[in-house]
């Protein structure tokens, strides 16, 4: 058996102290050990973006990150965006403006979009497309996702006023 290694990780504001297999990926840690199945797994090679989470505020493909490399880091998953019943503006906008169909790319898509808006609150449509270009979606054709992100940007600006 592999020797377990200690991991100190903060996910959605909750600190975990765990012993893990050194070869477990972040996506498997989130899904299998922490029960956070909102993070989706598909290609397992960093191509589809379904497993995107935020690590220290930056979007990463969690299938390409070893959990031990997230030691002492802060992770945000899709489960960490809403505050209780109150959804994040991105979540609201995705629901309202057609950004969601089958929903499988949605968690990763929303987190890539969040990373964009955190850095650039007023993106152009092209900047939105570039920011989500690592996240594959087969349902929407992306137009309504782009619309949703732009609407969310408006909503966030409105809230800040």
């Amino acid at each position: 058996m592999t020797n377990l290694v200690p991991l100190n990780i903060t996910v959605n504001g909750i600190e975990y102290r765990l012993y893990i297999e050194p070869n477990i990926t972040l996506v498997d840690l989130l899904r299998e050990k922490l029960g956070l199945t909102g993070t989706k797994k598909s290609c397992n090679e960093g191509e589809c973006g379904a497993c995107t989470v935020l690590m220290e505020g930056r979007p990463v493909a969690s299938c390409m990150v070893l959990a031990i490399d997230a030691d002492n880091k802060k992770i945000i998953t899709i489960e960490g965006l809403a505050e209780g019943e109150k959804l994040h503006p991105l979540q609201e906008a995705f629901i309202k403006y057609g950004g969601i169909q089958c929903g499988f790319c949605t968690p990763g898509m929303i987190l890539s979009a969040k990373a964009l808006l955190d850095e650039n609150p007023d993106p152009t449509p092209y900047e939105v497309r570039r920011a989500i270009s690592g996240n594959l979606c087969r349902c929407t054709g992306y137009q309504q996702i782009v619309d949703s992100v732009l609407k969310a940007a408006d909503m966030i600006k409105g809230n800040q006023v």
């Binding site: 899709i78 489960e79 979540q91």
Partner: peptide
């Protein structure tokens, strides 16, 4: 299914 999908 919007809410359940948007929240993971």
């Amino acid at each position: 299914d919007g809410r359940v999908k948007a929240t993971g």
